[in-house]
Design a protein around this nucleic acid. Structure first.
Lengths: 255, 255
DNA sequence: CCGGCCAAGTTGGCCAGCCAACTTCCGGCG
DNA sequence: CGCCGGAAGTTGGCTGGCCAACTTGGCCGG
């Protein structure tokens, strides 16, 4: 069984993972069926067992298969879509669902960063930041208001983008700004006047809020954002296991 | 540098990870400092580089360090607490924050599973399930209403627990029921009559909802729960990166 | 003084092998 | 017929090694 060579790939274990992911979601191993042994897969794909294990680690992290010593891996019914970089880009996420993402820049201001923003973006006192307010739509209907704070290096580029540009991560990537890691916090907040106007809801009505701090590969913050979603349009979904968890629930101590 | 032998551990790479985690959070490498090279760490701990890489993969998944080819790893300021099994147990999570968890069983009924429940718990038509309604408190104050559906095998055990027992996962574990994997979905919902009464809020006021499906190591569902949190008491926090993500955001298509 | 090239350092990836821990299943024995 | 023990199968874990890709910093030349 040869690997699809022109798959995005780059590395062997990702190709194997992509191939297995497709085989699993298409039902090749049955609903709650068992996967072939690691050794068998290694022979099938013509790679070492270590490489197969790397691939399977990806699938386990996505909650597609179990992983227990002594017995074959079992397919879980979770039926997750590819959860790769979706969290890092509204545009990318929308397209992967077959929806048409849209957006409109409502305002863009430049001002000194306050204490909280300096803390989040690791900026020196007095540094100026760029603040945007954007309305995001899914196939034409408004779903989210996005308030984003950019450090100078990124903000200067954002300010030059046309106001109706849909994706921001893509043009920024071409200027060497990479979005690779993010911390998210999810809670509920009441709509303020701007939210109510843009999302056509009553002031004070509940919104699902996602606070997000994004960094580049060096760990330097490139974005600090607060997104407010209209309830009923989106939800957040997470998988975690004892073996590998990327989630933590915590009490609120600040706004 | 020897490893603390009586650490929980079990495997070498977990010991190394725990040791590095402590060193990082205590600031041994500086705020945004660089970690020693993998080879240096391997020599320090007296293990192979592969083992060090396994340990570092854990830290990277938790968002503690970056990971880039060509350069040393960098400490991220995220300062995350241990996010291991916290998501799997309200009790465990509360205690790790220094809060005293409490709970009261409001009702426990036994009835045939409906279609949605059979789907979630993978049960045959006509199977009976155990349904509980619980109020959860943190240091005495109500924070969450929990509606849980158990399959027969688990429900029979839950029904025999005293109504004021705090933790359920712990006694169940002693009967061989393990909670290892879970899928979570987070959104907003309006309080119904029960919620309003138990949480002392108005009917229709917004609550943060977590739907959770928990499975044991074999992939068999052991719990299907809907938790409704009072806003302002808790939030959910996630880290994800391009390399290893455990989160996906998705549109709601059903209730 | 600036810019580009090169070498050293570092992580990503892959391989081959070995042993331990655990699960499952089958056959024998009571 | 049921229970128990053991063998086979499978994953977890660790080692040692090798090369490629990439980053960084310094050196050299213009």
């Amino acid at each position: 069984m040869a690997l699809d060579q022109d798959r995005a790939a780059g590395s062997l274990y990702r190709q194997v993972a992509a191939d297995l992911r497709e085989a699993i979601t298409s039902g090749s191993f049955g609903e709650a069926g068992r996967l072939p042994a690691e050794g068998a897969l290694a022979e099938q794909y013509g790679v070492s067992r270590g490489t197969v294990r790397q691939a399977l680690a990806l699938l386990r992290a996505d909650g597609l298969v179990t992983s227990r010593r002594g017995t074959r891996r079992v397919v879980l019914g979770g039926a997750r879509v590819q959860s790769f970089s979706e969290l890092l880009s509204f545009t990318h996420w929308a397209r992967s669902m077959g929806e048409e993402p849209g957006g409109r820049l409502e305002s863009l201001t430049r001002r000194p960063a306050d204490a909280a923003e300096r803390e989040q973006l690791r900026l020196a006192p007095g540094t100026e930041v760029y603040v945007t307010l954007r309305l995001r739509t899914l196939s034409g209907t408004p779903v989210m208001v996005e308030r984003t704070v950019y450090p100078p290096r990124v903000g200067e580029l954002v300010a030059q983008l046309p106001p109706d540009v849909v994706s921001h991560t893509e043009p920024l990537r071409e200027h060497g700004i990479l979005f690779t890691d993010a911390d998210h916090t999810i809670d509920v907040v009441a709509a303020d006047a701007d939210d109510a106007r843009l999302l056509s809801c009553r002031r004070g009505s509940p919104l699902l809020r996602e606070k997000r701090r994004t960094t580049d590969p060096t760990g330097t913050p490139v974005e600090w954002s607060q997104d407010r979603y209209l309830p009923g349009t989106v939800a957040f979904s997470i998988h975690n296991s004892l073996a590998s968890s990327a989630l933590s629930r915590h009490a609120r101590d600040e706004d």
